[in-house]
Nucleic acid binder design. Structure first.
Length: 517
RNA sequence: GGCUCAUUGGUCAAGUGGUUAAGAUGUGGCAUUCUCAGUGCUGAGACAGGGGUUCGACUCCCCUAUGAGCUGCCA
C-alpha cells in the first residue's frame, strides 16, 4: 500500500474556522497515524474573497497547534507549487480542462450571465418572479445568512446550450475573444456512485447533477476542479473534508473517472453546529480558532476538544495530547451526525489543561491577564498560583482577583453567615480582638498568620469558620475568593491587610451606630 | 421545491441482533474544607414515532416526522 498522504487545503479568506481546523487536525492525524505525509495547499482561486494576511493566519495556526506539515508552499516536497494561483499561472488546470474537452467530458460555454439568469430564476412565496441576481446573498459572510434562499422554489440546471455549439462556432467565439467558462459534461441519465469512509455508499442520479464550471471566465479553476486535479497530482490518498461537500462528491467522482484516475479515499466529517444546530457562524462568536484564543482558551484544549467533535476513541479517556491523538486516531470511528460545539464542555476541558499546566508555561500565559488588573506591587505569581486550579479560561482571572488591587465596596450583611455561626455583631468583636494580635507580629507568611489566628481560635474555643469568615471577608470584601484568609493576607502584606481590617471594623461600627443598637 | 445525509439523556458520545444502554460534560443532593474551586459519595436524565424482518431489535429494512447540508464563474 502506498504511503498515506493527506492535505489541508484552506482558502485564505480570514480567520481559521474551527470546522476547518478540525478538518486539518483529522488530516494530520490520519497521515501521522500511518506515518504518512501531511501537506498544506493554499486554495486561492477566488480572487475576490482573498484576504490579505489570511495565509499568515493559516501558517501561524498550524504552527501553534502542532499540525506541522511535511510539504507546502514553504516546504517543497517535489509536488509543487503548493499555491493554486501559481499552479494556475503555470497552466496546469487549463491543460487538464482541455484534455477533458478533447474527450467530450467538458465543453466551452459562452453563455452570458444574463442568459443564465433567465435559466435560473427564483419564485418567491407569493409567486413573483424575481431576478436571481438580486437575491444572491452576501457570500463573503455566508455563515450569517439565516435563510438566504428561503423562497427558492425551483432552480433549473444549466441547459447544456453551449454543448451543442459546432466546432466552427467555438473557434469563432474563441477567436473573437468572447469570455467563456469550461463546464463539466455530465450525462443526463444513469447514476453516479461513490464510497465514503464515514457515510458509506452513496448514489445520485446524474439528472440531478449540474454541469458545473471547471474553469471560470477569469481563467481560474473553481474549487471543484482544482481540488480534484491537485489531489491527484499530489498523490493524495485520503481526501478529508466537511460534510457540506458530500452533495458535490459525485461530481468529483465523475471527474476522476473522466480522467481515468483512481479515486482517493473520501472521509467526510460531520458538521459542527452551534447551539441552535445550525452551521457554526461568525455570529456565535466562537467560530474561529482566533476567537477562542481571545476568549482565554489554550491551544491544546481547543485541539483536544475539536478532535472529540465527531470522533471518539472508544475508551473512557477524553483528555488527549496531540501525540496521543496520533496514536489513537482511527478515522473509521468518525461518526456521521452533526455535533454541537458545546462551550460548557470546552471550558471544563480548558480548565483541566490549565490545572495540569506546568508552572512556567502557566505563568507565561496567565501573567498578562493578571497585570491587566493588578498594578500594585504584589507577588503576581502567588496570585497566579491561587487561581490556577480555579479558572476555566484566562478571562475568569479578572473577576477573581480584582479585590487584591482595590478593596471593593461591600455590604456588611456579608458578615452574616449561618453556617459559620457568625453575623455582623460577632464579626465586629472578633475582628476587634484579632486586630491587635495581627498588629503585634511581622511574619506575614501563610504559616505565620495561620499561627496567630489559629492560636486565637483555639484560645477562644470557637469554630474555625467563625474565626476566619469575618477575617476573609474583611480583607477581600468578597463572598468568595480564591484561597482563604491566610493566602490573601500573605499576598496583601501586613500593612494593607491591617488597613482593610480597620476599615471593616469602622464599617461594622458605623452600621451599628446607624441602627442604634 | 429537488437531492443527499442524519436522528442514543440538555450537550459530546460508547454501542454493530440477546447489555442492569458505558463514560464525559452539565445539572440536583450529601460530605469535607474559613468562602470559592477541588475531592469523595450519590440522584435525576436517552435509543424521534409507526410498521415490518427475527425466537429476539437501539442495532437490519420501509414509511413518517424532525433537523441539517447542498442546490454559486464560494470554497
Amino acid at each position: 500500500m502506498s504511503k498515506v498522504r493527506t492535505r489541508y487545503a484552506p482558502s485564505p479568506t480570514g480567520r481559521m474556522h474551527v470546522g476547518n481546523l478540525r478538518t486539518a487536525l483529522y488530516e494530520y492525524l490520519i497521515a501521522k497515524h500511518e506515518g504518512g505525509d501531511f501537506l498544506l495547499r493554499i486554495e486561492d482561486t477566488d480572487q475576490e474573497r482573498f484576504v490579505e494576511g489570511a495565509t499568515d493566519i493559516i501558517y501561524h495556526t498550524l504552527k501553534i497547534t502542532g499540525l506541522i506539515h511535511d510539504e507546502g508552499p514553504d516546504k517543497d516536497g517535489g509536488y509543487g507549487p503548493y499555491i493554486q494561483s501559481e499552479r494556475q499561472a503555470a497552466g496546469i488546470y487549463m491543460k487538464y480542462a482541455r484534455q477533458l474537452i478533447e474527450t467530450g467530458e467538458a465543453y466551452y460555454c459562452f453563455c452570458t450571465k444574463e442568459r443564465l439568469s433567465t435559466l435560473k430564476c427564483v419564485v418567491s412565496e407569493d409567486g413573483d418572479m424575481t431576478d436571481k441576481e438580486e437575491d444572491i446573498p452576501d457570500y463573503s459572510d455566508l455563515n450569517d445568512q439565516q435563510s438566504g434562499r428561503g423562497e427558492v422554489k425551483e432552480i433549473i440546471k444549466y441547459d447544456k446550450h453551449c454543448l451543442h455549439l459546432s466546432k466552427e462556432e467555438i473557434e469563432a467565439n474563441l477567436a473573437a475573444g468572447i469570455p467563456y467558462v469550461i463546464r463539466q459534461n455530465i450525462p443526463t441519465e444513469g447514476t453516479t456512485a461513490f464510497h465514503d469512509a464515514v457515510y458509506g455508499d452513496i448514489a445520485v442520479d446524474n439528472a440531478e447533477l449540474d454541469d458545473m464550471i471547471l474553469i471560470k471566465s477569469d481563467g481560474f479553476p473553481t474549487y471543484n476542479f482544482a481540488n480534484v486535479v491537485d489531489d491527484h497530482l499530489m498523490k493524495i490518498t485520503h481526501v478529508v473534508r466537511g460534510n457540506e461537500y458530500l452533495s458535490s462528491a459525485p461530481k468529483y467522482t465523475r471527474l476522476y473517472h473522466a480522467f481515468g484516475w483512481e479515486e482517493p479515499i473520501y472521509v467526510h466529517c460531520p458538521l459542527i453546529t452551534n447551539e441552535e444546530h445550525k452551521k457554526l457562524s461568525k455570529r456565535s462568536g466562537h467560530s474561529s480558532f482566533e476567537d477562542l484564543l481571545e476568549q482565554g482558551f489554550v491551544t491544546e484544549a481547543i485541539v483536544n476538544f475539536i478532535a472529540l467533535l465527531g470522533w471518539s476513541s472508544g475508551t473512557n479517556e477524553e483528555i488527549f495530547s496531540l501525540e496521543e491523538l496520533v496514536r489513537e486516531f482511527d478515522y473509521h470511528h468518525i461518526n456521521k451526525s452533526p455535533a454541537v460545539f458545546d462551550m460548557k464542555k470546552l471550558k471544563w476541558m480548558n480548565g483541566e489543561y490549565i490545572k495540569r499546566m506546568d508552572k512556567e508555561r502557566y505563568y507565561e500565559l496567565a501573567l498578562p491577564y493578571i497585570r491587566e488588573v493588578i498594578h500594585k506591587d504584589l507577588d503576581l505569581k502567588k496570585i497566579a498560583d491561587l487561581v490556577q486550579t480555579r479558572i476555566e479560561t484566562f478571562l475568569d482571572i479578572k473577576d477573581m482577583i480584582d479585590f487584591f488591587e482595590e478593596m471593593p465596596d461591600y455590604d456588611t450583611s456579608m458578615y452574616n453567615h449561618k453556617k459559620m455561626k457568625t453575623d455582623e455583631e460577632i464579626s465586629l468583636s472578633i475582628l476587634k480582638e484579632q486586630q491587635p494580635l495581627l498588629e503585634a507580629f511581622d511574619d506575614y507568611s501563610i504559616e505565620g498568620i495561620e499561627g496567630v489566628i489559629m492560636g486565637y481560635i483555639k484560645e477562644k474555643g470557637i469554630k474555625n469558620g467563625m474565626g476566619l469568615w469575618p477575617l476573609r471577608t474583611a480583607v477581600s470584601g468578597k463572598q468568595s475568593t480564591p484561597g482563604g484568609a491566610y493566602e490573601i493576607m500573605d499576598i496583601l502584606g501586613k500593612e494593607e491587610s491591617l488597613r482593610r481590617i480597620r476599615l471593616a471594623i469602622d464599617k461594622l461600627s458605623n452600621r451599628k451606630a446607624a441602627y442604634g443598637n
